[in-house]
Structures are given as C-alpha cells and as structure tokens.
Nucleic acid binder design. Structure first.
Lengths: 135, 135
DNA sequence: TTGCTAAAAGAGAATAATTCTCATTTAAGA
DNA sequence: TCTTAAATGAGAATTATTCTCTTTTAGCAA
C-alpha cells in the first residue's frame, strides 16, 4: 500500500520522516536540485537540515532509489526515473528533460558489442543531447 | 610561426602573458581543472590571480578556443581538442579520456536526421561513456 | 511495551570552487 | 608616444557541499 515506505524497506533502509519527505519531493518535483528539495520540504512540512538532505540523497543514489544527473552547466540534479534513459539539456539554462528511446539504445548496445574500446570496460553509456527547448 | 599568439589574434582577443600561459597550460596538461592550470602557471612562470584564470577560461570557451567538460563526478575540466569527440569517464575517479569515433558520429547523425524530438532542436550530441580504465 | 543501541538527524562551522568588486596595469591602435 | 577600453590582481563574497559533534530516534530484543 504505502509505496515509499516499501521502497525504503526493500533496500534495508530505516524509514524516517526525513527520508520519506525527500523521496516524495523527488517524485513531486521535476529533476530537483538538493536546494529545491530543501525548500520544498521546509515549505510543505517542517524543517530539515541541509546536511541530512545531502546525506540521504547520497544514500538513495547508492541504493539505486534515484539517479544523480549533472546538467551541461554543471548543476547537480536528482532523478526518480530509474529505467534506462538519456537527457535533453538546455543550452541556455539548467533545464533538463528525460529522453527515452529504446531504438537508440539498441543501436548503441549493438555498436559497442562489436566495437571494443582498448583498455576500457564500458559500464554505462548515456547520451547528452544539448539544444533548445521550443515551448 | 607563433601559434598561440595567432590563435588569440584570430579570435580578436588581446594577447596577454596570462592568456598565453593559460592556453599553453591547457595544451601541456591533460584535461586540467582551473586549479591544475593555476598551479602549473605559478610553478612554471609567475603568479596569476585565480579570478583571471576563471575569466580567461570563460573567454576561451566562448570563443571556441577550448571546450569545457564536466566529468561524471561533476568536476569541471578544460579540453584543448576541438574536433568533434566524446569522452570516456572513469566510474571511480575524475579521470576522463578523449574518445574519437567517426563511424559512431555518422550513425548518430543519421539517426537523429530521421528521428526528430518534439519541441526540441538539437545543437550537439555527446556520448558519456562511463566505465573502468585498464591501465 | 519498554529499553537498548546503532544509525540517523540537527545545527552550524568548515571547505572548495567560483564569482564579484574595485583599484591598478597594460595591449593595441590613433 | 598617448590614450583608453580591456585585462589583471588581490582578496572579499557567494554557492554548493561536507564535516563535526551532539542529540534524537527507528527498529529490534527481551
């Protein structure tokens, strides 16, 4: 029933109000920064220490509950989408958008299955597509 | 004859000892950070203000003399290689390595020529290949 | 249900990277 | 050579993040 609690429990993490709030914030916000999360929680619920937020985010990333994304401009954001995907990066701002493309993933996987890179073992390939969003 | 001076002149930039030192540092070092550049210049030549280095790097990036690269870990580095290329990112450290692959570039260009992304205009595509370097 | 304990959270100081401010110096062209 | 806009220097300010150390609490065990 309670999905967030289950996710924490499944990873063997203690269920605390702070962890619940942070995970909720990530699901409710769109690619938030640590600061976005702090502001959101302080406004919605109660206070939370900045150190706690950073530490919890780190724990979540290590436990594969969320992904850390660095924008083209170097801003650190967090992403609750766990399935394999890429990102569209705005060349003007820090805005990013998820980009899911299975066909492309197949092409890339096939390509790198053939083409080995000497002295390098590939773990993950991600495309950074930089450009302009047309609103 | 004097290549560095010519590059600055070609871009309409004033030729200063600081700019020459910084461009030299980027060519001599391998994907240096701003701090690597500062240390290198202070040791090789004379003093330089940190603010100057950051400002000059910015000017160089804007004038397409160098590229700014952000590692998988979020560290900002500078790259003197201007031809189209990707980067191999170490999953353990901040190390990155240039990855040039024209065949791949053709595949990607062809793919995105067909496949348009709605409400987004692609300016640049770069692959971030994360993994382990085998020394 | 209560008590114990390791883990988590809080407050705020410390650090790292970068930017800003403003006074001084200098490159480049008239 | 002179002039002036642009560049540099020094260090303060800012931002994002980490660290330290004390207090609180989740979760388990009796």
């Amino acid at each position: 029933m309670n999905k967030i609690n289950d996710k924490l429990r499944d990873k063997g993490l203690k269920i605390t109000p702070q962890r619940i709030s942070i995970l909720e914030a990530i699901y409710n916000l769109n690619h938030p920064t640590a600061d976005d999360i702090i502001k959101y929680i302080r406004q919605q619920h109660s206070n939370i220490a900045t150190g706690t937020v950073y530490k919890v985010l780190d724990t979540f990333v290590k436990n594969d509950l969320i992904k850390k994304v660095i924008t083209d401009k170097g801003v650190v954001k967090y992403d609750g989408l766990l399935t394999n995907h890429h990102h569209l990066h705005s060349s003007k701002s820090d805005e990013i958008k998820d980009y899911i493309d299975e066909e492309l993933d197949h092409i890339l996987t096939a390509y790198f299955k053939k083409k080995k890179i000497t002295n390098f073992e590939i773990e993950e390939i991600s495309l950074q597509i930089k450009g302009k969003f047309n609103k």
